[in-house]
C-alpha cells in the first residue's frame, strides 16, 4: 500500500485585484470577472506533500479541488510540480456552498479515496479568510487535526511530527495517522514547475475541457491515461443535495457593502514651520499629547 497524501487546494479569485462588479446580487462572489489563482497557502500545503514524497518512494500525492470547471487549472499546476493525480469535484449543485457544505462535499470525496494516510490543506483561502474548511473536513472524517503546520519534521506510516506556528510561539506535536493537517504561510514556499513534468502533463484535461476544445480525446486517453483529470459530480460522491449549496449552508449573506470612507472634515496643513507648530500647540493644549 502506498503512503497516500491528499492535498486540498482551492482556486481563488485574486483578492488583490478586486473591481466593482466582483459581487453578485445574492452576495456570492462573481468569480468570472477576477483573475483566478492557486490559493497561496495551498501551494505551501502541496510543498509539504512533495517533501514527504522526496523521502518516501511509496508516497503518492492526489490533489483534490472543488470548484467550477476552470479549477482544473490548479490541478495541472500541481501536476507540473510533482503531484501524481488530480480530482475535480464540480457540479452546479455546489454553487453557493459555505464552509460547512464545502467540507461535507470534500469529506465525501476523500472517503472515496480511502485508504489514505494524510490530508493536507492550506490554513485558509484568501477569498474568505475563514480557515474553517480544514478542521471541518477533519471533523466529518473523524480525523485528528493539526493546524498551522510550519514543518513536518517526521512522517512514518503510523505517526507524524509537526512544528506548528502559533500567534506567539511554536509548538511541536506528534499525532497518529491518518490525520488532517493545515499548512501556514510561514512554511516553505512551493517549488517552481518542473520542466519535464510540464511537458508530460501539459495536455492533462478533464473530459469537459476536451469537449469544450472539441478534440478527439478517446485515443489520447487510452494511450496516455495519466492525462485524464477525473471529474466528480454530486452523484459520483453520493452526496445528499440537501447538505450542499445554499440549502446546505447555515450562514447566509444578508448584506454586502462596498467599503467607502466616511470622509471627515479634515484640516489640511503644509509642512511649513508655522503649520506644524500650530498643530503641535493644539495637541498639547487639548492634552492629546504631553
Amino acid at each position: 500500500m502506498s503512503f497516500r497524501i491528499i492535498v486540498l487546494a482551492k482556486q481563488v479569485p485574486d483578492t488583490r485585484n478586486v473591481g466593482k462588479d466582483a459581487m453578485k446580487a445574492d452576495g456570492t462572489v462573481n468569480r468570472g470577472v477576477l483573475p483566478a489563482i492557486f490559493n497561496p497557502e495551498d501551494l505551501h500545503a502541496l510543498e509539504q506533500a512533495l517533501r514527504i514524497k522526496e523521502q518516501r518512494s511509496d508516497a503518492e500525492i492526489i490533489l483534490l479541488t472543488m470548484g467550477p470547471p476552470r479549477a482544473a487549472e490548479i490541478i495541472r499546476e500541481a501536476l507540473y510540480r510533482g503531484a501524481d493525480k488530480g480530482y475535480l469535484i464540480t457540479d452546479r449543485k455546489f454553487a453557493g456552498s459555505d464552509t460547512l457544505a464545502t467540507s461535507y462535499a470534500l469529506s465525501l470525496a476523500i472517503k472515496k479515496l480511502k485508504p489514505f494516510h494524510l490530508v493536507i490543506a492550506g490554513r485558509q483561502a484568501i477569498d474568505g479568510d475563514t480557515a474553517q474548511v480544514g478542521p471541518q473536513v477533519a471533523d466529518k472524517l473523524d480525523l485528528p487535526q493539526i493546524t498551522y503546520t510550519e514543518e513536518i519534521t517526521k512522517a512514518t506510516t503510523k505517526e507524524i511530527t509537526i512544528r506548528r506556528r502559533l500567534e506567539r510561539g511554536v509548538e511541536t506535536v506528534s499525532c497518529q495517522l491518518p490525520a488532517l493537517i493545515t499548512v501556514h504561510s510561514s512554511a516553505a514556499s512551493c517549488r517552481p514547475r518542473n520542466a519535464k513534468l510540464l511537458m508530460k502533463f501539459k495536455h492533462a484535461r478533464t473530459v469537459s475541457e476536451l469537449q469544450e476544445e472539441s478534440k478527439d480525446y478517446t485515443e489520447m486517453l487510452t494511450s496516455k491515461p495519466y492525462l485524464q483529470i477525473d471529474e466528480w459530480s454530486v452523484a459520483d460522491i453520493d452526496a445528499n443535495t440537501e447538505f450542499l449549496g445554499l440549502s446546505g449552508s447555515p450562514t447566509k449573506v444578508k448584506k454586502i457593502e462596498n467599503v467607502v470612507f466616511a470622509a471627515k472634515e479634515s484640516v489640511v496643513l503644509s509642512s511649513d514651520d508655522k503649520d506644524i507648530e500650530a498643530l503641535m500647540k493644539d495637541l498639547i493644549d487639548s492634552h492629546v499629547i504631553g
Binding site: 479569485p13 483578492t15 488583490r16 478586486v18 466582483a22 459581487m23 452576495g27 462572489v29 484568501i126 477569498d127 474568505g128 479568510d129 450562514t251 447566509k252 449573506v253 444578508k254 448584506k255 454586502i256 457593502e257 462596498n258 467599503v259
Partner: peptide, 10 residues
C-alpha cells in the same frame, strides 16, 4: 471579506 474590499453582514 474579499481581502477587505467589502463588508458583509452574515
Amino acid at each position: 471579506a474579499f481581502g477587505g474590499n467589502i463588508i458583509a453582514t452574515i
